[in-house]
Design a protein around this nucleic acid. Structure first.
Length: 129
DNA sequence: ACGCTGACTATTA
DNA sequence: CTAATAGCCAGCG
């Protein structure tokens, strides 16, 4: 797992100085934790919320280390832009992601969130850092 | 240091 | 609709 170093040099430039001392990973975790129960969002939305919308990959990378973060980060509520559970293979076991989503009332069909557009929660709109 | 990889996305053909 | 391309940037061999 990522050592969670503070290498968010560019992030510092985007985020107003003094407001956030958190690292890129922590910012991702922070946003992800605020996803309402039964709702989902996308990597790009989180990235856009942080100001680094062109670096959606880093969001996924950050969530890769979410297992070692307390409190738990509901990474299962984060999917790609079309509602596809691309990150399910990173759960233990694979299928845990779908199980958790079903537990929250989210239906998953063929590794894809049903009614993704309705369940979509946009942090850039609802959160607005 | 260099190049490749990746839980992504937007654009273009 | 699909396919290819380019941008992004931290890790790793």
């Amino acid at each position: 797992m990522p050592p969670l170093k503070k290498t968010n040099t560019k992030l510092k430039a985007v985020v107003p100085s003094g407001k956030r001392d958190e690292t890129f990973f922590e910012l991702v975790y922070d946003v992800t934790r605020q996803i309402p129960r039964g709702r989902v969002t996308s990597y790009g939305a989180i990235a856009a919320c942080l100001g680094t919308k062109l670096s959606a990959r880093m969001v996924g990378w950050a969530l890769n280390g979410s297992s070692s973060v307390r409190p738990r980060v509901p990474a299962h509520r984060v999917v790609n832009r079309i509602g596809l559970l691309t990150g399910k293979h990173h759960f233990t076991p694979p299928g845990q992601m779908k199980k958790l989503l079903n537990k929250e009332g989210i239906k998953v069909r063929n590794d894809q969130v049903v009614d993704f557009e309705k369940l979509f929660w946009d942090p850039v709109k609802e959160l607005e850092i």
